[in-house]
Amino acid sequence: MRTLLTILQSIVAIVLIVVVLAQPSKTNGLSGLVSGGAGDTFYSKNKSRTSEALLSRITVISAIIFAALCMIQNVVK
């Protein structure tokens, strides 16, 4: 049982790392300072339908699964 949980946790950890690294940066850097921000664009209004939103959801779900597996492994000991 512990071996299966360890393998699952390793797989979820790798998925979590890949998804976090695949996400774009949320900061604008110096370009946001000069231009003043994004404003109301089509992209900013429909942000919930983009690939960024999908990556964000996958990140949250995999983090919850990772935390649950950590707790389960602690109880199984």
Results as ranks from 00 to 15, higher is better:
50 T>D: 09
29 G>A: 12
35 S>E: 13
15 V>T: 10
9 Q>Y: 08
29 G>H: 07
10 S>Q: 13
36 G>N: 09
48 S>N: 09
29 G>K: 04
32 G>V: 07
53 A>V: 00
15 V>F: 04
68 A>T: 14
43 Y>F: 11
10 S>F: 10
55 L>F: 04
15 V>S: 03
35 S>N: 13
60 V>R: 06
56 S>Q: 09
45 K>L: 14
5 L>T: 02
6 T>M: 12
28 N>I: 05
10 S>M: 12
58 I>A: 01
50 T>A: 05
14 I>C: 00
64 I>L: 15
76 V>E: 15
56 S>T: 15
39 G>A: 10
27 T>W: 06
30 L>N: 08
56 S>P: 04
43 Y>K: 06
61 I>Y: 00
37 G>D: 07
47 K>C: 14
7 I>N: 10
41 T>D: 06
52 E>R: 11
17 I>R: 00
38 A>R: 07
50 T>K: 08
18 V>I: 08
32 G>K: 07
24 P>Y: 03
56 S>W: 00
24 P>F: 02
41 T>P: 03
62 S>E: 06
63 A>R: 06
59 T>F: 03
53 A>R: 04
39 G>N: 09
21 L>W: 02
28 N>C: 15
12 V>E: 07
63 A>Q: 04
55 L>M: 09
48 S>G: 03
60 V>I: 10
48 S>Y: 12
30 L>M: 13
26 K>P: 02
15 V>A: 06
15 V>L: 00
32 G>N: 01
12 V>D: 03
62 S>M: 00
68 A>Q: 02
36 G>Q: 08
75 V>Y: 09
42 F>S: 12
5 L>F: 10
6 T>S: 12
61 I>V: 15
26 K>V: 14
12 V>T: 00
50 T>S: 13
42 F>M: 14
7 I>R: 06
10 S>Y: 06
25 S>W: 11
59 T>K: 03
21 L>E: 07
25 S>H: 08
62 S>A: 00
73 Q>W: 00
25 S>F: 08
51 S>E: 07
49 R>S: 08
45 K>C: 09
22 A>S: 05
27 T>G: 11
53 A>G: 03
6 T>Y: 08
7 I>W: 10
10 S>H: 12
57 R>H: 07
39 G>W: 02
65 I>A: 10
31 S>P: 01
10 S>W: 09
38 A>C: 02
21 L>T: 03
8 L>A: 08
20 V>C: 00
40 D>L: 15
72 I>V: 13
36 G>R: 01
25 S>V: 09
53 A>T: 00
46 N>H: 13
41 T>N: 06
23 Q>W: 05
15 V>N: 04
54 L>R: 03
34 V>G: 02
30 L>Y: 12
20 V>E: 00
30 L>G: 02
36 G>L: 12
32 G>L: 04
23 Q>P: 04
11 I>H: 05
60 V>T: 13
58 I>C: 02
61 I>M: 10
65 I>R: 04
50 T>M: 07
55 L>P: 01
27 T>Y: 05
27 T>N: 13
76 V>D: 14
62 S>W: 01
67 A>K: 12
